[in-house]
C-alpha cells in the first residue's frame, strides 16, 4: 500500500529540489549575514545611549528595517521581480529566488544582531573604553566576540526563516521543495508529493536548529 501511495514521487526530482532549497538557503544566508551584520551593528551603535548615538541615523535605519519587515514575504517576492531581473538576469528558478530572500532575511537578522549586542554587559564596553580603545576596536575586540553566541542563535533563527521563505518562493516559480509542493502537491493534487516535501522541510528545520544550538553552546563561555 505504501508503494502504491508513493507512486507520484519521483525521488530524483525530490533530491534535486532538496539540493536547490539548500543552495537557495545557503547562498541567501551568506548575503543576509554579509548585509545584516553591519546593519545590526550600525543599528546598535547609533541607538540611544550607545557609543555613536545618532538619533537621526538610527531613526532612518530603523524605519527602513521595519518597513521591509512589515511587508509580507509573498508581496515582497512580487514587488522585487524587476529588481531581481536587473540583479541576476531572471526572476525564476534558484537564482531568481535569492535577491528577495536576502532582502527579506537581512532586516530580520539585523534586528537579531542588534538585540544580541544589547545583551552584552555595558560594563565590558566601559572597561574597553577605559583601556583607550577606538570604536572599531571595541566592536571587533569586545562587542562581537561577546555577542557571538547570541549572533549564532540569530543566524539559526534566520536560516530557518529562510527555509520557509525559500519554500514560499515556489509561488513565483522559485524552485526547490516549495516549487515541487506547489506544482505537484497542490496543482496536481499529488498529496504524497506534498507530504514528502513538507516532511523534508521539517527534517531540514530540525537539523538546522540542532546545528545552531551546538554552535551556540560551543561558543558560550559564560
Amino acid at each position: 500500500m505504501m508503494a502504491q501511495w508513493l507512486t507520484n514521487v519521483d525521488w530524483l526530482e525530490i533530491g534535486r529540489a532538496c539540493w536547490d532549497t539548500l543552495v537557495m538557503v545557503g547562498v541567501s544566508l551568506f548575503f543576509v549575514v554579509l548585509l545584516g551584520l553591519p546593519l545590526g551593528v550600525a543599528l546598535f551603535l547609533t541607538g540611544k545611549r550607545q557609543l555613536l548615538e545618532q538619533p537621526l541615523v538610527y531613526a532612518v535605519l530603523s524605519f527602513v528595517v521595519n518597513l521591509l519587515r512589515s511587508v509580507p514575504f509573498v508581496i515582497l517576492l512580487i514587488v522585487m521581480i524587476p529588481v531581481t531581473v536587473v540583479l541576476v538576469g531572471t526572476s525564476l528558478g534558484v537564482p531568481g529566488a535569492i535577491p528577495p530572500l536576502v532582502v527579506g532575511g537581512a532586516p530580520l537578522f539585523a534586528r537579531l544582531v542588534e538585540a544580541a549586542l544589547r545583551e552584552v554587559d555595558r560594563g565590558i564596553v566601559e572597561a574597553t573604553q577605559a583601556m583607550g580603545a577606538t570604536v572599531p576596536q571595541i566592536v571587533f575586540g569586545a562587542l562581537l566576540p561577546e555577542a557571538l553566541p547570541g549572533i549564532l542563535a540569530g543566524v539559526t533563527v534566520t536560516s530557518i526563516t529562510l527555509v520557509s521563505y525559500a519554500a514560499m518562493s515556489g509561488v513565483i516559480g522559485g524552485g526547490g521543495l516549495g516549487d515541487l509542493a506547489i506544482r505537484f502537491g497542490y496543482q496536481r493534487f499529488q498529496t504524497d508529493v506534498m507530504v514528502i516535501t513538507v516532511a523534508l522541510l521539517v527534517v531540514l528545520v530540525q537539523l538546522l536548529q540542532m546545528l545552531g544550538d551546538r554552535l551556540v553552546l560551543r561558543f558560550s563561555r559564560r
Partner: peptide, 15 residues
C-alpha cells in the same frame, strides 16, 4: 592607556 581601572563586577570578556 596610562590609567588602569578595575570594577565591581570585574567586566572581563567572557569570550
Amino acid at each position: 592607556r596610562r590609567i588602569g581601572m578595575i570594577f565591581q563586577h570585574f567586566n572581563l570578556l567572557s569570550s
